[in-house]
Design a protein around this nucleic acid. Sequence first.
DNA 1: TTACGTTTGCAAATGATATTCATTTAGCTT
DNA 2: AAGCTAAATGAATATCATTTGCAAACGTAA
Lengths: 148, 148
Amino acid sequence: MQVDELKSRFEQFLKQKGYKITKGRFEIVDKIASYGKHFEIEELVRWIANQNKTVASRSTVYRTVRLLQDFGAIREVIKLGNRTIYEFVAGKPHHEHLICVECGKIIEFYKDEIEELQDKVCEEHSFTPLNHRLEIFGICKDCMEKRT
Amino acid sequence: MQVDELKSRFEQFLKQKGYKITKGRFEIVDKIASYGKHFEIEELVRWIANQNKTVASRSTVYRTVRLLQDFGAIREVIKLGNRTIYEFVAGKPHHEHLICVECGKIIEFYKDEIEELQDKVCEEHSFTPLNHRLEIFGICKDCMEKRT
DNA sequence: TTACGTTTGCAAATGATATTCATTTAGCTT
DNA sequence: AAGCTAAATGAATATCATTTGCAAACGTAA
Ligand SMILES: [Mn+2]
Ligand SMILES: [Mn+2]
Ligand SMILES: [Zn+2]
Ligand SMILES: [Zn+2]
């Protein structure tokens, strides 16, 4: 399992930033890594709360998600209305999302050509890209079929 | 000016939906059309409030922005943190955005090939796209130069 | 073990947006 | 033109996600 690998890298990250190595932080890493789906923070808070003898409070979850974003293990992948959907991306290759506005299904995809074209656009504008997000909203196959 | 054209189309839209033609709604259309920049709703509310003998209240602004989105004259183009940046798109051709995370500058671009590739991806997943948003976050030329 | 800065949990604050409700208004229908 | 009814408005209040203040607990390094 590469979770241990990840945790040790996260430990390095914390040390290097002068932050402390705490139980709560690592519990949250474990939970997020084992959650396996795209998630919203409140969803995660509830899920963690339902596990027995859990440690982390809502504030700590929010604060740790922030840290994990800086660390690069988590990414905000979908912004819909006032909801933010995150994803645990450590180890996963970069990709974008199709979001069904009817059932909420999330489909992942990756197109190298799109990435290249983005780089080209950035160059054309002397813009240094740090990260990007492509969201395509629409109706998934199943929902489309149900409509008839 | 095509604002009148737009307002008359908006009027059709309202009638067709059984909504009413009111002063407030059209005042807001005028303000947004003349604002000329990407905007956040609170920013718009303040700006409208600063004009003299204005009609619309905060609630009406929020409600009308919603309507204009349904109508298609307004689009949520950037979601950054808990901020939503809108744009008056009526008449404007579709495009995407580069966002400087340092100074907030917004650069618009359009790449036909990217649009085509998106359609291709959707087809591959039997997904019916309704709309999409591509945000590229990074550092603009000016900010990059200032860094040295 | 001590000392000190960091983290935590909780409650309270925030900020954007939505909603409630009493009042006004738009758009019919006499 | 006057009345009628449903929709729109404004102000206050609620909601929801997220952040913050603060006292107590903890992690780290000497
Ligand atoms: Mn994903
Ligand atoms: Mn734009
Ligand atoms: Zn669906
Ligand atoms: Zn800049």
